[in-house]
Amino acid sequence: MSIIIQDKGLLTTIQSSNGAVDSLSPQLANKLVGNSVDADTVEMVVRPAVIQFTEPTVIAFSGAFFKALVGDKTIYPNRIYIFDKGDVLQFTDINRGSRIYLAVAGGIRYEKSNILESGDEIIMCRNYTELHDEIFNMMRNNETVSWGIDTYALAEIYLSDDFHIVRRDDTPDEIYEKLIEREYTIVGERNRFAIYLKGEEIEFDPDRIDNYGILGGVFIQDNQPVMAFNDFVTSTSLPHVGTIPSYHMHKLAQKTNGSLLKFKVIDAEDAHVELYKFEMWKKTIFKAIDYKIKKELVKEKM
């Protein structure tokens, strides 16, 4: 037996690190449970799945700020938990965001399709390392630890409404002037495909045959911006005005309908500086998790 999807929720899939719409949250959840940060996770959207465990399983979830219940115990994001045979994880209140990523110590995989239906099983790989063994030992007498990734540490990364867009040299300045003039409102999302905005109208019809449907690409459809997610088309005839850098895509992934969004137009050089700062921040968080786990292990051995 493995992990059973009792209720699939709105859309529950297993995603690789490249396939996750919010690429940061799976890394955080994986890091907490001792996995490689690139290990596959369960991506759940808006209405998460109900999940049953059939053996002692160490998990963490990250992303949207959902609370969850196992029996009468409240389960929080960005913490490590161990669940036992028969435990059922059910998500409840949502405070912010739209996507949750569940990591399972030792890794997971799917048998037929990565799109999970009610009744499907997620196969536990059980690729346990020495670190996993130590985490299991550490949690033998405790269902969780007293720490997690602090919400404030993630606030700056997730809560801002400002989005960088890397300009194209061949796009006229007046297009960018309109784009940055006022905030845009998210009016819809086709899941994993694109986010649709409404705000200042942009009339743009350049002489191009097709554009690459790059992840984070900002395209104009019916005079309004459309932002491409992971499953967007490879090639599109929609005019392309710029691209959101990867370090802002996880923030976009957690925005919901009605959220406001403000563009800031930058050059690729500035985006590289910001990306490097983001990578340094991420390394700091990962080191802090390593430190906390080691400290718990020492405490356990004393």
């Binding site: 061949d170 045959i209 554009n211 959101i244 050059d267 985006a271």
Partner: peptide, 18 residues
Amino acid sequence: MFFENGEAAITFQVKRVF
């Protein structure tokens, strides 16, 4: 033309079909 397509892609684009 060549252009930097975000911070992790370089694109070459032409006005015809390859």
